[in-house]
Protein backbone atom coordinates (compact mmCIF):
# COMPACT_ATOMS: atom_id res chain seq x y z
CA UNK A 1 0.00 0.00 0.00
CA UNK A 2 1.51 3.26 -1.13
CA UNK A 3 1.56 6.08 1.38
CA UNK A 4 1.66 9.55 -0.06
CA UNK A 5 4.01 12.16 1.29
CA UNK A 6 1.07 14.09 2.76
CA UNK A 7 -0.38 11.02 4.48
CA UNK A 8 3.03 10.21 5.89
CA UNK A 9 3.45 13.75 7.25
CA UNK A 10 -0.06 13.70 8.72
CA UNK A 11 0.65 10.38 10.39
CA UNK A 12 3.90 11.70 11.79
CA UNK A 13 2.33 14.92 13.07
CA UNK A 14 -0.81 13.18 14.38
CA UNK A 15 1.26 10.52 16.13
CA UNK A 16 3.53 13.20 17.54
CA UNK A 17 0.53 15.11 18.86
CA UNK A 18 -0.90 11.98 20.50
CA UNK A 19 2.49 11.20 22.02
CA UNK A 20 2.75 14.75 23.32
CA UNK A 21 -0.76 14.59 24.81
CA UNK A 22 0.08 11.31 26.52
CA UNK A 23 3.32 12.61 27.95
CA UNK A 24 1.60 15.76 29.20
CA UNK A 25 -1.42 14.00 30.69
CA UNK A 26 0.40 11.09 32.31
CA UNK A 27 2.16 13.15 35.02
CA UNK A 28 -1.06 15.11 35.69
CA UNK A 29 -3.18 12.00 36.15
CA UNK A 30 -0.48 10.38 38.28
CA UNK A 31 -0.28 13.51 40.41
CA UNK A 32 -4.03 13.32 41.07
CA UNK A 33 -3.77 9.75 42.39
CA UNK A 34 -3.05 10.08 46.11
CA UNK A 35 0.02 8.16 47.27
CA UNK A 36 -0.71 5.18 49.51
CA UNK A 37 0.02 6.03 53.11
CA UNK A 38 1.31 2.96 54.93
CA UNK A 39 -1.17 1.94 57.59
CA UNK A 40 -0.11 0.54 60.91
CA UNK A 41 -1.18 -3.08 60.88
CA UNK A 42 -3.41 -3.05 63.94
CA UNK A 43 -4.32 -6.53 65.11
CA UNK A 44 -6.06 -5.69 68.35
CA UNK A 45 -7.00 -2.74 70.56
CA UNK A 46 -7.78 -2.39 74.24
CA UNK A 47 -11.22 -1.00 75.02
CA UNK A 48 -11.21 -0.32 78.75
CA UNK A 49 -12.51 -2.36 81.65
CA UNK A 50 -15.40 -4.76 81.25
CA UNK A 51 -16.68 -3.96 84.73
CA UNK A 52 -17.09 -0.30 83.76
CA UNK A 53 -18.96 -1.00 80.52
CA UNK A 54 -22.67 -0.93 81.25
CA UNK A 55 -25.06 -3.38 79.65
CA UNK A 56 -27.25 -2.28 76.73
CA UNK A 57 -24.72 0.35 75.61
CA UNK A 58 -22.04 0.82 73.02
CA UNK A 59 -18.86 2.67 72.13
CA UNK A 60 -17.00 3.43 68.91
CA UNK A 61 -13.34 2.36 68.95
CA UNK A 62 -10.50 3.47 66.74
CA UNK A 63 -9.16 0.33 65.16
CA UNK A 64 -6.28 1.90 63.26
CA UNK A 65 -8.11 4.11 60.78
CA UNK A 66 -11.23 2.00 60.96
CA UNK A 67 -14.14 2.63 63.34
CA UNK A 68 -15.35 -0.44 65.23
CA UNK A 69 -18.50 -0.56 67.35
CA UNK A 70 -18.27 -2.41 70.65
CA UNK A 71 -21.64 -3.34 72.15
CA UNK A 72 -22.51 -4.86 75.48
CA UNK A 73 -25.84 -6.59 75.12
CA UNK A 74 -28.54 -6.63 77.77
CA UNK A 75 -27.43 -10.10 78.80
CA UNK A 76 -23.88 -8.82 79.33
CA UNK A 77 -22.21 -10.32 76.23
CA UNK A 78 -19.73 -8.25 74.26
CA UNK A 79 -19.95 -7.90 70.47
CA UNK A 80 -17.57 -6.02 68.23
CA UNK A 81 -18.37 -5.21 64.59
CA UNK A 82 -17.04 -2.95 61.90
CA UNK A 83 -18.92 0.35 62.41
CA UNK A 84 -18.92 1.34 58.76
CA UNK A 85 -22.29 0.76 57.15
CA UNK A 86 -21.97 -1.53 54.13
CA UNK A 87 -24.43 0.64 52.24
CA UNK A 88 -22.80 4.04 51.81
CA UNK A 89 -20.00 4.32 54.34
CA UNK A 90 -21.78 6.09 57.23
CA UNK A 91 -20.96 5.15 60.82
CA UNK A 92 -23.61 3.02 62.51
CA UNK A 93 -24.87 3.27 66.09
CA UNK A 94 -26.35 0.92 68.66
CA UNK A 95 -30.00 1.63 69.40
CA UNK A 96 -30.62 0.58 72.99
CA UNK A 97 -34.38 0.92 72.43
CA UNK A 98 -34.41 -1.47 69.46
CA UNK A 99 -31.52 -3.68 70.63
CA UNK A 100 -30.25 -3.42 67.09
CA UNK A 101 -27.61 -1.58 65.11
CA UNK A 102 -28.92 1.33 63.11
CA UNK A 103 -27.51 3.55 60.41
CA UNK A 104 -29.00 7.05 60.51
CA UNK A 105 -28.09 7.88 56.93
CA UNK A 106 -30.48 5.58 55.08
CA UNK A 107 -32.31 3.77 57.86
CA UNK A 108 -30.39 0.49 57.57
CA UNK A 109 -30.73 -2.07 60.40
CA UNK A 110 -28.41 -4.86 61.49
CA UNK A 111 -28.93 -7.40 64.23
CA UNK A 112 -26.40 -7.86 67.02
CA UNK A 113 -24.46 -10.37 64.94
CA UNK A 114 -24.04 -7.70 62.27
CA UNK A 115 -26.47 -9.29 59.81
CA UNK A 116 -28.25 -6.77 57.58
CA UNK A 117 -31.90 -7.28 58.38
CA UNK A 118 -33.69 -4.26 56.98
CA UNK A 119 -33.17 -1.23 54.76
CA UNK A 120 -30.63 -0.79 52.01
CA UNK A 121 -27.40 -2.36 53.42
CA UNK A 122 -26.28 -5.07 50.99
CA UNK A 123 -23.85 -6.98 53.25
CA UNK A 124 -23.43 -7.79 56.94
CA UNK A 125 -20.94 -5.91 59.12
CA UNK A 126 -17.54 -7.60 59.60
CA UNK A 127 -17.14 -9.27 62.98
CA UNK A 128 -14.30 -8.75 65.42
CA UNK A 129 -13.33 -11.04 68.31
CA UNK A 130 -13.80 -9.80 71.89
CA UNK A 131 -11.76 -11.31 74.72
CA UNK A 132 -11.77 -10.28 78.34
CA UNK A 133 -8.35 -10.64 79.95
CA UNK A 134 -8.19 -9.67 83.62
CA UNK A 135 -11.29 -7.50 83.20
CA UNK A 136 -9.70 -5.70 80.25
CA UNK A 137 -11.63 -5.79 76.97
CA UNK A 138 -9.50 -6.76 74.01
CA UNK A 139 -10.96 -6.39 70.51
CA UNK A 140 -9.07 -8.16 67.76
CA UNK A 141 -9.34 -9.10 64.11
CA UNK A 142 -10.69 -12.52 63.33
CA UNK A 143 -7.96 -14.31 61.37
Amino acid sequence: MAVSRRQFTNLLLGGGLLGWLGSALYPIVSFLRPPKIPEANVQSVKAGLASEFSANSSEILKFGRQPVILIRTESGDFRALAATCTHLDCIVQYRSDLKQIWCACHNGLYDLKGRNISGPPPRPLDQFAVNIVNDEILVSKIA
Binding site: I60, K62, P67, I69, A83, C85, C90, I91, V92, Q93, C103, A104, C105
Partner: peptide, 10 residues
Protein backbone atom coordinates in the same frame (compact mmCIF):
# COMPACT_ATOMS: atom_id res chain seq x y z
CA UNK B 1 -15.82 13.62 64.22
CA UNK B 2 -14.77 10.76 61.93
CA UNK B 3 -15.22 8.34 64.83
CA UNK B 4 -18.74 9.24 65.87
CA UNK B 5 -21.93 7.60 64.62
CA UNK B 6 -23.85 9.43 61.92
CA UNK B 7 -26.35 11.68 63.73
CA UNK B 8 -30.06 11.29 63.31
CA UNK B 9 -31.60 13.47 60.62
CA UNK B 10 -28.56 13.30 58.40
Amino acid sequence: DPFAPAPEGI
